[in-house]
Design a protein around this nucleic acid. Structure first.
Lengths: 242, 242
DNA sequence: GTAATAGTGTCTTTTAGACAATATTTC
DNA sequence: GAAATATTGTCTAAAAGACACTATTAC
């Protein structure tokens, strides 16, 4: 540890423009619920380092060189990467946290802003593998192969955030179809919490959300193997990336 | 918007090393509770841009140029800046969110990782103004002068995070002395929520935390203007920056 | 009819909140 | 004793959870 004085000297000796700058990336934790399970989209790295390992999709933020053209926003970079990797647009994205431990990329200092994306199950079949990565695959979110870099930490942080938001926000609505049954929403909650919920008790919470104007009945029913269920719609306008 | 193809060409034409890189800073939302009010430490800018305006303390992350010496961690940069600006060390710090909108600094592309710090009221008198900034002052967290850059957004995000964590974590323990009375903890909650809480009802929650082993009685009492109160201690080890 | 799921109801426990009452200390 | 705060207690309402029961549809 340097002393206070030398630190201040350091600061005064260097002009801001002369501080070394890190590379900046966004990494995406793309989540969905399929077969009552929370799943994450991973890509297999085609290049060193960690060649052949599975990793979160991501890429460099486009940074402009001049004061007038500074490049794209972080949210924009996340949406663009998502589009490039999956072909999907208009998907719920939320910033999780930024990872910047020195040495996390052996080549150079790379700071990465992590986002999670919530993909409705109905869109999953439309996902097509893009980008440079050789392959893309959905894995159980808590059952992945070893991940490249510090991507396991990123995944854990994204899931923790999702769980923390679950009972506080309407985030689960991003993981069901536009119109959904009580069971479908319950299944999303169960997948996120990795825990079964009582159907009767969950329905009570559901009805309360109707009373609160969060959910409203929609037209039609959902055909099942037995008694068809009513479908509902999320009332509040969703915040989606444009 | 470019097409998918040209975006891919873009990616392939550029080696990672050749992407432009942003400047990287940390900005600190340093909070405390004084006189039953949540307060934030602001510094007055001595340089352009926004010369003379009040701003959050912060500074550049030290980034190494080589693969072997990549510089300091983000958490480390936040702790160092806090030490430089206030003289305090061993303070609770938590990453909030990263701000990187192009144009947020008119000089160049600057991406800033925001942390909040929680300073126990007992430490407030020890805070001394450091760094380059001419002056530092505590302001009511919701009653600040106009702030430089996008610092008002940062402050709002930090307060929102603090409020969201309040009932979910033991974060309020960072804003009371090491041993504290029921009232002191209640006052911290009231300041964060900007709302009065019933003393009797709060005590019930407090007793429940004792049952849960979160809080334990400590030796001594707190002298007041009337009946002295018992003091307690947070049981769980605190996570503090080293 | 049978299987399967939708949907309703009951009971208990926990928690939040409003609010009254009592206890203990300083001055 | 008066003021001030600590501390306890009561009552109500909202919510979570366990669990039994009824209704409706596909087959």
């Amino acid at each position: 540890m340097t002393t206070k004085t030398s630190e201040r000297q350091f600061l005064e000796r260097y002009r801001p423009e002369r501080f070394a700058r890190p590379s900046l990336t966004v990494d995406l934790v793309i989540l969905t619920v399929v077969d009552k399970e929370l799943r994450v989209l991973l890509v297999q790295r085609a290049e060193h380092p960690f060649k052949g390992r599975w990793a979160l999709p991501g890429g460099f933020v486009r940074v402009g060189e001049s004061a007038d053209h500074q490049g794209e926003d972080l949210d924009e970079a996340a949406a663009r990467e998502l589009q490039e990797e999956t072909g999907l647009s208009n998907i719920y994205l939320e910033q999780v946290r930024t990872f910047g431990k020195p040495g996390r990329d052996p080549r150079m200092r790379v700071v990465s802003v992590v986002y999670f994306a919530l993909v409705r199950p109905s869109l999953v079949p439309l996902v097509r593998s893009g980008g440079d990565a050789a392959r893309a695959r959905w894995y159980g979110a808590t059952d992945t192969p070893p991940l490249a870099f510090d991507h396991a930490d990123m995944l854990a942080a994204a899931i923790a955030r999702l769980r923390a938001d679950l009972d506080r926000t309407g985030i689960a609505f991003q993981l069901v179809p536009e119109t959904f049954t009580v069971q479908e929403l319950r299944t999303a909650h169960e997948a996120i919490r990795a825990q079964a919920l009582d159907p009767g008790n969950f329905r009570k919470r559901f009805l309360r959300m109707i009373d609160d104007g969060v959910i409203e009945p929609a037209r039609g029913k959902r055909a099942t193997a037995s008694k068809p269920a009513h479908v509902y719609r999320f009332t509040v306008e969703r915040e989606v990336e444009s």
